[in-house]
Write a protein that binds this DNA or RNA. Structure first.
Length: 283
DNA sequence: GATCAGGTTTGCA
DNA sequence: TGCAAACCTGAT
């Protein structure tokens, strides 16, 4: 067992932050995660957050996966002290970290995400894994990995439609073929500078600015990327008059985006808005 | 039934 | 460039 004692590590917030679709609450009051072909159980205890893995696995994979060597307090303290809203969001979201997830899994997950809410995305991803993933055994229980590009590229598009992907099926199918054929090398792309990585992602069908930025942030850990979805846009309209000063945070905007996203969707923010703007009642 | 959801593409001005 | 409509599916 490994214990994480870090006030900048909050299991629930990370699970709910919308960056990861395979971290699900389990029967033991904790969370179970399948990532990079491995299964991990986590739960909060008096001694800290408990990870049921060996020290070797922790050092080889999970320390990096949870980005534990980064100082998130430093990211928050770099925020403009005049920016009251952003400081509130940072306080509220404290404990969120940007996970280092698999680029292929992120690409497919965020292509699927368009015009779907989080539960719907989770269901689609789960169905893909159950039907086409590789089995992994863990304490007598069976789990499934995220299916490889090779596996998905060999499927008829109707199989993907059967996973409720809808019009996105052809996008996933095309991406799978490109990756499986080697025409697009997602691992090699790790070495690309931001702009080149962005344009190679944008070249894929069904991938626009938002999806590309999510893949860069969550799959390639480019912390300067600032994906703008409708929630972020609503906040930017309401709090910043239409433009967020992302250029002020070239190395941390993505982490700030996660704090904002988490706060923007919270009841706390809704209540705050309502307090200052009675008009929202009518909307 | 109509509308809408964490978006992208296409077509038309 | 900029804007609206269409696209699948599931939920309200």
């Amino acid at each position: 067992m490994i214990y994480i004692n870090n006030s900048d590590f909050d299991l629930r917030k990370i699970a709910e932050s919308g960056q990861c679709f395979r971290m699900r609450s389990n029967a033991k009051g904790g969370y179970t995660l399948v990532a990079h072909g491995r299964v991990l159980n986590l739960r909060n205890t008096a001694e800290g957050c408990e990870l049921d893995c060996s020290n070797a696995d922790f050092e080889a994979l999970w320390r990096d996966y949870f980005d534990l060597d980064r100082d998130y307090a430093a990211i928050r303290s770099g925020v403009d002290p005049e920016d009251a809203f952003l400081n509130l969001a940072c306080d509220y979201g404290r404990g969120i970290r940007i996970l280092r997830q698999d680029p292929w899994e992120m690409l497919v997950s965020f292509i699927i995400s368009q015009r779907k809410n989080i539960p719907a995305i989770q269901r689609c991803v789960e169905t893909l894994c159950v039907r086409y993933g590789e089995p992994v055994e863990r304490a007598g229980e069976l789990f499934l990995t995220f299916p490889s590009a090779k596996r998905l590229s060999g499927l008829d598009e109707t199989c993907l439609l059967g996973c409720a992907l809808g019009y996105r099926a052809k996008y996933v199918s095309a991406a799978a073929r490109l990756v499986a054929s080697g025409e697009l090398d997602l691992q090699k792309a790790v070495a690309l500078p931001d702009e080149a990585l962005l344009s190679s992602l944008l070249a894929l069908p069904g991938v626009g600015e938002k999806v590309a930025n999510c893949v860069m942030l969550f799959g390639y850990h480019r912390l300067g990327r600032f994906p703008q979805d409708v929630w972020i846009n609503r906040v930017i309209d309401a709090e910043y008059g239409g433009t967020f000063p992302a250029e002020r945070y070239p190395d941390t905007a993505g982490a700030l985006q996660q704090y904002i996203f988490y706060y923007a969707r919270s009841a706390a923010y809704a209540a705050e808005k309502k307090r200052f703007d009675p008009e929202t009642m009518e909307e």
